[in-house]
């Protein structure tokens, strides 16, 4: 198992080294990541959403649906803990009609 794990890790390392040449330069303002969608968030974020903090503007307004998904994830995890170690642990599905 350790040998396969090590081999897989080496393969992954090779893949990432190969890809690192294609990534844009670090920290430039005209990299595609910072030049296409996000200038609107910065330039018009406060006027369109009223939030000074632009991360809040993105999280709560532009991409508010993702935040709904995120709160659902927390809810799901809490409910999962309930099912796994709370009420769910005391009830056995086996022996029930399948």
């Amino acid at each position: 198992m350790k040998a396969t794990a090590f081999a897989l890790t080496l393969v992954a390392a090779a893949v990432f080294i190969h890809a690192s040449s294609a990534l844009p330069a670090f920290g430039t303002a005209d990299a595609p990541a910072s030049a296409h969608v996000s200038p609107r968030y910065i330039e018009r974020g406060y006027e369109e959403t009223g939030a000074h903090n632009l991360v809040t503007a993105v999280l709560a307004d532009y991409r508010g649906y993702d935040t709904l998904g995120e709160t659902t994830v927390i809810f799901t995890a809490g409910l999962a803990a309930l099912l796994i170690i709370g009420a769910g642990a005391a009830w056995s599905w086996e022996g029930r009609p399948r």
């Binding site: 996000s38 200038p39 910065i42 991360v55």
Partner: peptide, 8 residues
């Protein structure tokens, strides 16, 4: 846009 880092 160049004065603030990318919030996304």
């Amino acid at each position: 846009a160049a004065a603030y880092i990318n919030p996304l």
